[in-house]
Design a protein around this nucleic acid. Structure first.
Length: 598
RNA sequence: GGAGCCUUAGCUCAAUUGGUUAGAGCGCCGCCCUGUCACGGCGGAGGUUGCGGGUUCGAGCCCCGUAGGCUCCGCCA
């Protein structure tokens, strides 16, 4: 036996007990005579006092202890001397008077301190096991565990069955870049790691599973971000004979259970619903952050007959004029204005016009183009007051909305508008477009994925190939401006699925080779079905109050998709490559032969 | 593929306008210290200033290139 208690369980009521603790040396305070050692385990800290006059041999041993040594201490629980209690520690009323000390393992000096704010991320990742000893990350892992357990418990209670689907899977042309795994038995052929269990879960519906879920690892070979890792975890859900309302209710119940279990937070259900169109119209984003206001205001009516050519021109061309009012932001610096202009241009605007309401007047190069009725209308529609700063976008609807949406988020950061207390603002975004045009590929792509069904009311538009107007039976869940989940009602009729592939310009031959199994299944009794998937990492990140999903993953990868701890990816033995019949086309870039003259 | 910021001791950071031997705190090592909880005191070790090149009498600092880290854009159905 290594211990009788954890390091956060002894209290006044335990005084006099003989106990045994095991853990890491969190700190030593060696007074030459008396020595204090804090023993730490996953639960907390307990102070051990070594007194040379009581046990010289033990004190001598204790003198050699350093941070993160692993020890086992046996001793008696005693009250601390009056006046030396530590109110900051749950165990601060007691201490251990040891009669035995075993040093289980010594630790070298650490590469970075554990009691300071985490910095130097690559060093931390190289020694991730040390980083995870910090209270913050230990807590994050526990919250993640409780979230996953609550998910399983809740879905089980609703009749859902967890089914595992293959990791060695098949590459599909749509969507993200696949990770490939070469086949040894069939040289020249490759598995792909799943981007999501999408097709499998639909096939499970054809299989009559009716209610499926899985906490599933997914893989996408794309560039990384603070909220994007090449491998991540989804809560994947699919059900037969359901409507979107069924999925909404299930989701709201599940998220309520997760928040309750993970942090004892009661969330408000049902969630608001916003159409895609309204979300862009009001917030300039399909994942609106509503924790602060600064909504987009449409000024088409105001400037319909304007003599200001930039606004009038945009409107005459079928576009829009919109604006946001950054309350109290007239003190904007030159640098900030430049940065916002850059953002506007980056997202398609030709420039960025703004008005500062300062010292009782409107300061802006464009105000002179406005007549009095236009100024009055602006004033009232945007509620412009002294100290405000108004930003305009005049462009195609999509561009104007997106530009102002991006500005809105950046301005909120600059103004530190985010309320300090925790807010959990959930909402559904519904009625997404079914298609989006890809200028690169010169074809229509599925906005969600190719298995999403058109809204029943838009089926005629679909038949008439009025693709920009067709809405999908698709929905996202947004929490605090972060997309945490999304799903749709699926196509289950082979004819409709075929038409969808045709709309996406997937050739009949490819349809058969890539999706033949799905189309065949749909001819053999496929029930209506639909579902949803959640990014577990993002969800847990928000629950933990973290800024990056790396902080809620045990062993995340860095910006270049490397695991710095294990140094993967790594080269492999040539024998392994021979078995796979793989020959590298070029060696590492530095040893590549120089290209010949042009 | 692109943009921004960053890289000085094990860690976090300093170093005036380009100017002597690159400093501090923490950590580490040694000595002292009997009620601390960020214990305290004294002393010590520890540096190719990421790397390469250039300008200069002289470069941590200026210029060019390169590597690495983070954030963002593209990308992520």
């Amino acid at each position: 036996m290594y211990r009788t208690h954890d390091c956060n369980s002894l209290r006044k009521t335990d005084i006099g007990k003989q106990v045994m603790l095991a853990g890491w040396v969190n700190g030593t305070r060696d007074h030459g005579g008396v020595i204090f050692i804090d023993v730490r385990d996953r639960e907390g800290l307990t102070q051990v006092v070594f007194r040379p006059e009581e046990n010289a041999e033990l004190a001598k041993q204790a003198h050699t202890l350093r941070g993160e040594d692993v020890i086992q201490v046996s001793g008696r629980v005693a009250a601390r001397l009056p006046g030396t209690e530590n109110p900051n520690l749950p165990t601060g009323d007691i201490e251990i008077i040891p009669n035995e000390l075993r040093i289980l393992n010594r630790a070298d000096p650490l590469p970075f301190p554990l009691d300071a704010e985490p910095q130097n991320e690559d060093l931390r990742m190289t020694h991730r096991y040390l980083d995870l000893r910090r209270r913050r990350f230990a807590r994050n892992l526990q919250i993640r565990h409780r979230a996953a357990k609550a998910t399983r418990d809740y879905l089980d209670s609703q009749g859902f069955v967890e089914v595992e689907t293959p990791i060695l899977s098949k590459s599909t042309p749509e969507g993200a870049r696949d990770f490939l795994v070469p086949s040894r038995i069939m040289p020249g052929k490759f598995y792909a790691l799943p981007q999501a269990p999408q097709q499998y879960k639909q096939l499970l519906m054809v299989a009559g599973v009716e209610k499926y879920f899985q906490i599933a690892k997914c893989f996408r070979d794309e560039d990384l971000r603070a909220d994007r890792q090449p491998e991540f975890t989804q809560i994947d859900i699919e059900a037969s004979f359901v409507t979107p309302d069924d999925i909404f209710a299930l989701t709201e119940g599940m998220l309520a259970a997760i928040f309750k279990a993970a942090r004892n937070i009661e969330i408000k259900t049902p969630f608001d619903r916003l159409t895609y169109r309204e979300a862009l119209e009001r917030f300039g984003s399909d994942k609106p952050d509503r924790r602060f206001a600064m909504e987009l205001v449409d000024l088409g009516e105001t400037f319909r007959e304007s003599s200001f050519k930039v606004f009038r021109g945009a409107l005459d061309a079928g576009g829009v004029v919109k604006a946001i009012n950054a309350k109290g932001f007239a003190g904007i610096t030159i640098g900030q204005a430049d940065e916002l202009t850059e953002i506007a241009k980056l997202h398609g605007a030709k420039g960025l016009a703004f008005i500062k309401a300062e010292s009782g007047e409107w300061k802006s190069p464009i105000v002179k183009f406005f007549n009095d009725p236009e100024k009055t209308a602006l004033q009232s529609k945007l509620n412009i007051e002294e100290g405000d700063c108004v930003f305009f976008a005049a462009d195609k609807w999509e561009v104007a909305c997106e530009v102002l949406g991006r500005l809105r988020l950046r301005i909120a950061e600059m103004q530190e508008l985010m309320p300090p207390r925790e807010i959990w603002d959930f909402l559904w975004v519904i009625d997404f477009p079914l298609f989006e045009w890809s200028a690169d590929e010169n074809k229509w792509n599925a906005m969600h994925h190719p298995f999403t069904r058109p809204k029943a009311g838009d089926m005629l538009l679909f038949e008439e190939r009025k693709f920009p107007e067709v809405r999908a039976e698709a929905y996202d869940v947004v929490l605090n401006g972060v997309e945490i989940g999304g799903g749709s009602m699926r196509i289950y009729e082979p004819e409709l699925q075929d038409k969808m592939f045709e709309a996406l310009s997937i050739k009949p031959n490819d349809r058969e080779s890539q999706f033949g199994h799905l189309l065949r299944a749909f001819r053999l009794g496929a029930p209506p079905h639909g579902g949803i998937a959640f990014g577990l990492d993002r969800l847990v990140m928000l629950i933990c109050g973290e800024q990056s999903i790396r902080d809620v993953m045990a062993f995340p990868k860095n910006n270049r998709a490397m695991d710095l701890m294990t140094q993967s990816p790594a080269e492999v033995d040539p024998k392994q490559l021979r078995e796979l019949r793989i020959r590298l086309a070029g060696a590492a870039p530095e040893s590549r032969a120089p290209s010949g003259p042009k």
